[in-house]
Design a protein around this nucleic acid. Structure first.
Length: 565
RNA sequence: AGGGGAUUGGUGUAACGGUAGCACGACUGACUCUGGAUCAGUUAGUAAAGGUUCGAAUCCUUUAUCCCCUGCCA
């Protein structure tokens, strides 16, 4: 568990400083504030681990808050998915589930306060006019002709906005700050817009909705948040965040910004992920190739692996890109500890053991997890005909090939040592079957007793197998990176990020042969197919056709050696 | 001179004026009934230039490069 303990980082330094000076009375209250407009991804996991982790470490609490201020993009199904994913990741918000929309009434009243203070006004300009008068990055904006309406007029208009007297876009409420500010966010930002749209949580109660800048900080304030942690792009918004809290004279949390996670071979924005879903480049948000939490869950990644990954990537303000290999390392590290070992043959080649009695079946005792003795052992049926992996045989093997070849001896894991005697081919010259003999003295895979001179026969290779008579047929889905380029956004003129989608990101294998006990697992259960990789049953599995997703391959130094040549 | 932020091995990070460390990756080797795991080792870095200091990744100045900001998105 110590690996999951985050190391020191700048946010902890800030919190420590606050605690030292007593700014928040030693309290730490954080929040994870997703907008329910898409599924959570691994980048959100970084934020979730940070916010919940910080609260836990400092004896505080972390709230889950739906940042639901834009009903045109938000849906209940996303809210449900957020619940599932945060829980699955291992975090508990207890009673602290909130919705920005719960605060709409308070936000409205505070807007009136600002109008009364002369700090907000109703603007009749349309979106285009507001854009035109905002100025540019290098030139100041110009003030709206409606900027100096009386408090009474503003109050009346704002009340009528709420009452639904105006159409979408006819009027907005703006904060009166500074049209000449070098920070564009301070040039009279829009606080409320009119949106005649039903809201997943408030139904048709409202037709005016607060903008992020006006809703977020105020929601933080209402909840007594001490540290409002967000990503770098909000750095420019902090002065506005502070302005609202100061103007309203309400509890004032500290906004802190950190760099969002980037991963090689991956896109992370919800907009792009939505595109992948909508354009059917993937099956849905929880497609195992997606960097979503639900996709990774379906793929067989574990919560512990994701949490550990989040602890390892660090926390800085530097815009970096983490190698996918680090995530894979964390996944293998956890899966190695917890996965049940089983035997499965993906590309079967029949082997007939010619000197093994017809009709005989034995059961062989196999270790369930060499990393965890408490996982115990199981019995695996063995008989005259077995399947081995086609890759584990070569008719004309190179020097360092330790597997089966004509005249060569190899160990069938937990069973017997066999020697290949014949290669059977079809008319086209394809290998269809192997004949072999076994050595009864090697039962269980053990070395045979020493000969009269005291020499012990050795065997270098051990391969996996499945008894043909007892095998389960299955479909196996093999996944690879969704993109072929480390940075999918690096594209030629006129292309977009879909230009480098990997056509081989999903390979479906049918007719895989499984050890019978593989029928006993549920989606999410971590399994290692020995010598191949980590797998978990897919939710599409049926009694007749079990389906397994490959979570990740085992490291394969043999494949690496081959590749180099 | 628009504003804001950033820059340490291939990658991600630590070092808070005092020995540049850790992890991932890559590469060796040992061990192994998984060519897995494990173990041992190798590799490679403070963006640049000035300055302050006994001493600078850290402080100052200048430069370079990168990211964000002109939604009635968040």
């Amino acid at each position: 568990m110590s690996t999951e303990t985050a190391s020191r980082h700048f946010i902890r330094d800030i919190v420590d400083e606050h605690n030292r000076t007593g700014r928040f009375g030693g309290k730490v209250i954080t929040r994870f504030p997703p907008e329910p407009n898409g599924f959570l991804h691994i980048g959100h996991a970084k934020s979730i681990c940070l916010n919940f982790g910080l609260a836990a470490d400092y004896g505080g609490v972390c709230h889950l808050r739906m940042d639901d201020t834009n009903p045109t993009k938000e849906e209940q199904k996303y809210i449900d998915a957020i619940h599932t994913d945060v829980k699955w990741l291992g975090f508990d918000w207890g009673p602290h589930e909130y919705y920005a929309s719960d605060y709409f009434e308070q936000l409205y009243e505070w807007a009136i306060t600002l109008i009364e203070k002369g700090l907000a006004y109703v603007d009749d300009q349309n979106a285009e006019q507001i854009r035109q008068t905002r100025g540019t990055l290098t030139r100041p904006g110009t003030e709206s002709p409606y900027r100096n309406r009386s408090v009474e007029e503003n109050l009346g208009l704002f009340q009528r906005m709420r009452a639904g007297e105006f159409g979408n876009g006819e009027k907005v409420l703006r904060a009166k700050i500074d049209m000449a500010s070098p920070n564009v966010n301070l040039r009279d930002p829009v606080m409320y817009r009119i949106l005649h749209a039903p809201h997943p949580h408030t139904g048709d109660k409202w037709c005016i909705y607060p903008m992020y800048d006006y809703a977020h900080g105020q929601s933080d304030s209402i909840e007594g948040i001490t540290h409002s942690i967000c990503t770098l792009e909000f750095e420019d918004h902090r002065p506005l965040y502070d302005w609202f809290c100061d103007a309203l004279e309400i509890h004032h949390p500290q906004q802190i910004e950190f760099a969002r996670l980037n991963l090689t071979y991956t896109v992370m924005s919800k907009r792009k992920l939505l595109t992948l879903v909508k354009d059917n480049h993937v099956a849905d948000w929880s497609d195992p190739r997606m960097p979503t939490i639900s996709g990774m869950r379906r793929r067989g990644y574990t919560p512990a692996a994701l949490r550990n990954f989040c602890a390892r990537i660090g926390m800085t303000k530097f815009n970096s890109t983490t190698e996918f290999a680090l995530l894979e390392h964390c996944v293998r590290e956890d899966l190695n500890k917890v996965a049940s070992r089983r035997m499965a043959v993906l590309d079967p080649l029949r082997v007939v053991i010619t000197n093994y009695p017809e009709d005989q079946t034995e059961t062989m005792s196999a270790v369930n997890n060499p990393e965890d003795e408490s996982a115990g052992r199981r019995e695996v049926p063995f008989s005259k005909v077995v399947y081995i992996e086609r890759d584990d045989f070569m008719e004309d093997p190179p020097r360092k090939f330790f597997r089966l070849a004509p005249g060569k001896e190899v160990r069938l894991r937990y069973a017997y040592w066999i020697t290949c005697t014949d290669v059977i081919k079809d008319d086209a010259g394809n290998i269809v079957e192997l004949h072999a003999t076994y050595d009864p003295a090697t039962r269980g895979g053990e070395s045979p007793p020493p000969d009269s001179a005291g020499n012990v026969r050795k065997v270098k290779g051990t391969i996996h197998w499945v008894s043909a008579e007892h095998a389960l047929d299955a479909e196996v889905r093999l996944y690879d990176h969704l993109f072929t380029k480390e940075n999918p956004d690096e594209v030629e003129e006129g292309q977009d990020f879909t230009a480098h989608l990997n056509p081989d990101s999903l390979k479906i294998v049918t007719g895989a042969k499984l050890e019978p006990s593989l029928a006993d697992f549920e989606p999410g259960d971590p399994i290692q197919f020995e010598r191949i990789g980590y797998f978990t049953p897919d939710i599409d599995s049926t009694k007749d056709t079990p389906i397994f997703n490959r979570s990740i391959t085992l490291k394969d130094t043999w494949a690496k050696m081959q590749k180099k040549q």
